[in-house]
C-alpha cells in the first residue's frame, strides 16, 4: 500500500475547491449534471488523496489502480479532481461539453487523461471494473479496480449480473463506492423504483458491505480503509450522500440532477462555496 496522507482539513478544502469548479463548469456549459457531481465529490477527493495508486504524469501507467466513474454523467466532479491532481490543466475545465474538448459530456477514456472508462450509459462500469480486476489477478498484479456507482444506476439489471459474477470469481481487488444520494433523473428514487434494503442485497450477493455518511470526511477515510482491506470477496462502501451537497438550492432537489444554474443562482452558489471571484 502506498502511504498517502492528507489531513481531514486538507481533504475538505480539496473537495470545496472541486465543488466550485463543478458549478462553474455546469454554469459555463449551461448543461450537465451538478447534483450527482456535488454528492460524489467528497468521496472521490478522499479516494484519490488517500488510497488510489495513480501517476498524474504517467496516466497510462500499466500498474495503476483503475478508477471507473460508472455514473459517467457526474463528470464535472471527476474533471475537477483530475485538474486538482494534475492529470489535466484547470484551463481544460473550460472545454467541458465544448466541441473538441478533453472534458466530454460524459467521462471518456479516449478523450481525457486519467479516465479509465468511457461512461455515459448506466449499469456498465461494474462489469468493466470486474474485467480490470480479473486482468490484474491473472497477471499477478496488486492493482485494484475502484468503481463509483450511483444509486439510481443499480436499478439496471446488468449491475446485478456483475455483482453476482464478481463474488463468484472472488474478486477481492474490486471495490465499489455507491453514491446513495436518493435522487435520479426524474424524481426521488423512492418514487421511481423502491430499492428496499440495499446493503442486504449486496451482502446476499456475497459482498463485504460498509455504510458511511458520504460527506463526513472522517467517516469517508475510515470507509476507504475498509475498501483497502481485502479478502476474497469484493467490497462495497455505501455512502449516504445529499444530491447537490454544498449549494443550498440544489441540495436534495431533483431539479438539479441535470440542470444548470442561471446567473443569479450561480452567484449565490459561489458565495455559499466561498469562491473568490
Amino acid at each position: 500500500m502506498v502511504n498517502i496522507t492528507a489531513s481531514i482539513t486538507e481533504l475538505e478544502e480539496l473537495a470545496r475547491r472541486c465543488r466550485i469548479e463543478i458549478v462553474k463548469m455546469v454554469h459555463r456549459a449551461q448543461a450537465g449534471h451538478p447534483g450527482g457531481s456535488l454528492s460524489e465529490i467528497d468521496l472521490i477527493a478522499a479516494l484519490y488523496s488517500t488510497s488510489l495508486r495513480v501517476r498524474p504524469d504517467e496516466p497510462d501507467w500499466e500498474d495503476r489502480d483503475r478508477f471507473i466513474l460508472s455514473k459517467g454523467h457526474a463528470s464535472p466532479g471527476m474533471y475537477a479532481l483530475l485538474a486538482e491532481k494534475g492529470f489535466i490543466q484547470h484551463s481544460d475545465l473550460h472545454s467541458y461539453r465544448v466541441l473538441g474538448g478533453v472534458c466530454q459530456g460524459h467521462v471518456d477514456m479516449k478523450w481525457c487523461p486519467g479516465v479509465d472508462f468511457s461512461a455515459g450509459s448506466l449499469g456498465m462500469g461494474l462489469s468493466f471494473g470486474m474485467g480490470c480486476a480479473l486482468a490484474a489477478r491473472i497477471e499477478g498484479s496488486e492493482r485494484r479496480a475502484f468503481v463509483m456507482l450511483g444509486d439510481g444506476e443499480i436499478q439496471e439489471g446488468s449491475i446485478w449480473e456483475a455483482a453476482m459474477a464478481a463474488a463468484h470469481h472472488e474478486l477481492g481487488n474490486l471495490k465499489v463506492i455507491l453514491d446513495r444520494n436518493r435522487i435520479q433523473n426524474d424524481d426521488f428514487c423512492l418514487e421511481q423504483m423502491r430499492m428496499f434494503d440495499i446493503p442486504a442485497k449486496w451482502r446476499a450477493f456475497g459482498w463485504n458491505v460498509m455504510e458511511i455518511d458520504g460527506h463526513d470526511m472522517n467517516e469517508i477515510v475510515e470507509g476507504i480503509k475498509f475498501l483497502d482491506t481485502s479478502n476474497d470477496a469484493p467490497s462495497i462502501l455505501i455512502a449516504h450522500t445529499i444530491k447537490g451537497k454544498g449549494v443550498s438550492y440544489m441540495e436534495d432537489n431533483p431539479s438539479f440532477h441535470g440542470a444548470a444554474p442561471n446567473d443569479e443562482q450561480f452567484a449565490l452558489a459561489m458565495q455559499e462555496l466561498g469562491a473568490v471571484e
Binding site: 462489469s127 468493466f128 471494473g129 474485467g131 480490470c132 449480473e161
Partner: peptide, 12 residues
C-alpha cells in the same frame, strides 16, 4: 456483463 468484463480486460 460478459461484454464489458471483456472490455475491461482488453483495456488492461
Amino acid at each position: 456483463n460478459m461484454l464489458l468484463v471483456a472490455a475491461g480486460m482488453a483495456s488492461s
